[in-house]
């Protein structure tokens, strides 16, 4: 069964690492609902927030695998809506606008 999840990942600040993280979801039946990244200036790391839809069991396996990547420092996730994201970032408004525009796959960068 496909469920909605919110995922937060702290990772090294380069494209390679971001790509490796995103790559793991490719071709495995996940839908991307939204994605934002932001610099955490105080520790010079990046923060990725994602909403995805897909099977829970596979998601857990993939997140565990991702946790072994050298440049991934922290992963938290929950079934949506779980508010593991900071306030505002997953505001219903943003979601509604995107849905209205039919831009479900647009990355909110």
């Amino acid at each position: 069964m496909n469920l909605n999840f919110e995922i937060k990942i702290i990772f090294g600040n380069d494209f390679d690492c971001l790509n490796k993280i995103l790559n793991i979801f490719c071709g495995k039946g996940f839908t991307l609902e939204s994605l934002t990244t932001q610099m955490q200036y105080k520790n010079n790391k990046n923060e990725l927030k994602m909403k995805v839809k897909g099977p829970q069991k596979l998601l857990i396996i993939l997140l565990k695998r991702m946790d072994t990547f050298p440049d991934v420092f922290n992963i938290s996730w929950n079934k949506a809506p779980a508010f593991i994201f900071n306030e505002g970032l997953q505001s219903p408004l943003t979601k509604k606008i995107n849905q209205r525009k039919g831009e479900r796959n647009e990355a909110l960068l």
Partner: peptide, 27 residues
């Protein structure tokens, strides 16, 4: 090559200077 081998390596890296080799190879 980095893109092609990303899902089949534990880690891969394009090195941009000889100094970087000093860190990348032991790593």
């Amino acid at each position: 090559v980095i893109g092609i081998t990303r899902p089949i390596t534990k880690w891969n890296k394009l090195v941009r200077s000889p100094q970087e080799l000093l860190e990348a190879i032991p790593k």
